[in-house]
């Protein structure tokens, strides 16, 4: 059985759902950030799969994947800085207890 585009897309959907479940349920803010990284990675897999199966000579999907990586790196740097700043103020990064901006 040869590996087709659908295999990569289903694998990517599976990874995305696992990351979504983790991001919705976890209370540790670092784990939430890790689950978001997982979701970004699954999107990258599907972009590269589209690129190499549908437009193999244009590489558009791989260019998009590079930009997703850039944004993911910026996001994780700023996100972890925010988590460290919150931890310094509250000595806690439980997402249930961070409710300073809750109305």
């Amino acid at each position: 059985m040869t590996i087709g585009l659908e295999h990569y897309l289903v694998l990517s959907a599976l990874l995305f759902s696992i990351g979504l479940y983790g991001a919705l349920t976890k209370r540790n803010a670092v784990i939430i950030l890790m689950c978001i990284e997982l979701m970004l990675n699954s999107v990258n897999i599907s972009l590269v799969a589209f690129s190499s199966y549908i437009v193999p000579l244009l590489l558009t999907g791989q260019v998009f994947a590079i930009f997703v990586m850039v944004v993911a790196a910026a996001e994780v740097a700023v996100g972890l800085a925010i988590i460290l700043a919150i931890y310094r103020g509250l000595t806690d990064i439980d997402a249930n207890n961070i409710n300073l901006m809750k109305w």
Binding site: L20, K26, N28
Partner: peptide, 17 residues
């Protein structure tokens, strides 16, 4: 890494997606 109380709704959302 404890979970919050939204385990079952989150699982349903992830499974539907």
């Amino acid at each position: 890494s404890p979970s919050n109380r939204m385990k079952i709704p989150a699982f349903i959302v992830a499974a539907v997606v």
